[in-house]
Design a protein around this nucleic acid. Structure first.
Lengths: 214, 214
DNA sequence: CGTATTCTCAAACGATCGTTTGATTCGAAC
DNA sequence: GTTCGAATCAAACGATCGTTTGAGAATACG
């Protein structure tokens, strides 16, 4: 019955990903999603149970592979004395870049990911923390090994900044607008290159023992 | 009739700011807003005309003062040979910090500002660009003077990263969660201090003439 | 005072939301 | 061919959305 090579579930996930990226979770309706996926409205609740479950599935589909690849890349570097800061950053950012490079909607997903940070939805936050929190903790441990001069608190502050900048840059929210659809991949690769370079310098900055502002 | 010292318009703006920060523009309904403001539902359309106009007014109320203060701080530094990179960053970030420090809902507004980046709402983007784009251009010119080794393109990439990190950090989206309401101001000041330090190092990083990734 | 204007209020408007229902169609197993 | 579970469909559910209405209360001005 499907004229498309993709199943109904896959078409819903793809359309939802794209529309959530553009309009947000509350702003994109199931009627928009099912219309874009060319499926019946009831198909969402039939296949996923509810809109919230659909949102979770949009995340799970991408994050399972993304974080597996991140940990795999980290596994080749961890504990080795010759590992560089740039290499660990690359292990974290590279899979996200690859994801955004795959034609099948991954570029939209990184925008959805940025949405998740902006959403203060507690249910969503808990889901992400429970399912993928261990990845961030493993990377933090490796960064700590490479930056022993930083206190744990200082390190977490900086990793927080890197994560924010990564999310923001990959999601293409910035003032720098690309010219056309063809240049999107090149644009995103440039963003990642600049980001790794910038983040490495920021992480390496000497600890300030900050004085009161004024 | 108002038992509050604030007018109906002011109470609506304050409640809207807080709820937009938490639930987003589409996620916060006018019924939630008017209930929190303890005013009648129809008051929004009477005083502002529509929900979209209310959103614009939430921005205008804060950004007019914020950007005036930013340009004022920049005016004391621009063209002077002894100006430092940190001072210009401080001129950009400091007023945002002060805003988030004022008790009257400014802390919520910085989260609203971050929402604006995540929203791909063209109407909102156009409004912000038309009304406040000149501020970013003036700061870019001053950064260019202080970082002559950077190409214009390279500089814009880095400023884009700084803006993203600033927005993200000030909006308190990160993994670092503060313990209670009392510590919020101290938390935010720490975030700004770390951010200035991090951003200055990132901006000063030598130009990479980036090689192909691999 | 009376009058005009501004503001607030409960109530309802039509539209759209997420979800559910029940009938119908499909594809494999026997 | 018959049967049966899976999938799709049009239609409708109650709830909530932004917005509008018209009457009443508060305020300002003569």
């Amino acid at each position: 019955m499907n004229s498309s090579p993709f199943s109904t579930k896959e078409r819903i996930l793809g359309a939802a990903e794209s529309l959530f990226a553009t309009h947000g979770f509350a702003g994109a309706s199931l009627r928009q999603v099912t219309a874009a996926a060319k499926v019946n409205l009831a198909a969402v609740n039939y296949h996923f149970g509810s809109k919230d479950k659909l949102i979770e599935e949009v995340f799970r589909r991408r994050l399972d592979e993304l974080n597996t690849r991140r940990l795999g890349a980290l596994g080749h570097l961890a504990q080795k004395p010759e590992t560089t800061l740039e290499a660990v950053l690359e292990a974290y950012i590279g899979p996200a870049l690859d994801l955004s490079r795959t034609g099948g909607g991954g570029a939209a997903f990184v925008r959805v990911l940025a949405r998740a940070y902006a959403e203060h939805n507690e249910t969503l936050r808990k889901f992400l923390s429970e399912n993928y929190g261990h990845v961030l903790r493993q990377f933090a441990a490796e960064f700590q090994r490479l930056l022993p001069a930083l206190s744990k608190e200082e390190l977490y502050w900086r990793l927080d900044i890197v994560t924010g900048a990564l999310t923001y840059a990959m999601a293409d929210f910035g003032i720098i607008q690309r010219k056309n659809e063809v240049a999107e991949q090149a644009h995103r690769e440039q963003a990642a290159d600049h980001l790794v370079h910038f983040a490495a310098a920021g992480l390496r900055a000497p600890s300030p023992h900050p004085a009161p502002r004024g």
